[in-house]
């Protein structure tokens, strides 16, 4: 994955990842040294069921450029 980035702008991507699948998958990506853009910030959630729409809105409200929910 690569993003053409001439302006130097760095997006702020917040990921909410379920501890049991997506968070574990992100760990697995690490074990396999699969590189991805460094702008991604992962927040661990106990389960995607815990996700509150309020948290997504909060992220956008505070300036996140993208939010990924995974679970």
């Amino acid at each position: 994955m690569s993003v053409e980035n001439k302006s130097g702008w760095q997006p702020k991507i917040i990921v909410f990842a379920c501890n049991w699948c997506s968070y574990a998958a992100a760990d697995l990506a690490g074990l396999n040294h699969l590189e991805y853009p460094a702008e991604v910030r992962i927040i661990r959630t106990p389960c995607s069921g815990r996700m509150d729409p309020m948290l997504v809105l909060r992220a956008f409200n505070r300036g996140a450029d993208g939010v990924l929910l995974s679970g």
Binding site: A26, A29, G30, L31, E35, Y36, A38, E39, R41, I42
Partner: peptide, 27 residues
Amino acid sequence: VNIREQDSWVHHDRGQATQKAIDLVRM
């Protein structure tokens, strides 16, 4: 704070990876 599996092992740019680690620590 996960700065190995989700940082040092998946990024190679020292500046970006360090910044990410700082952000995650702040979080």
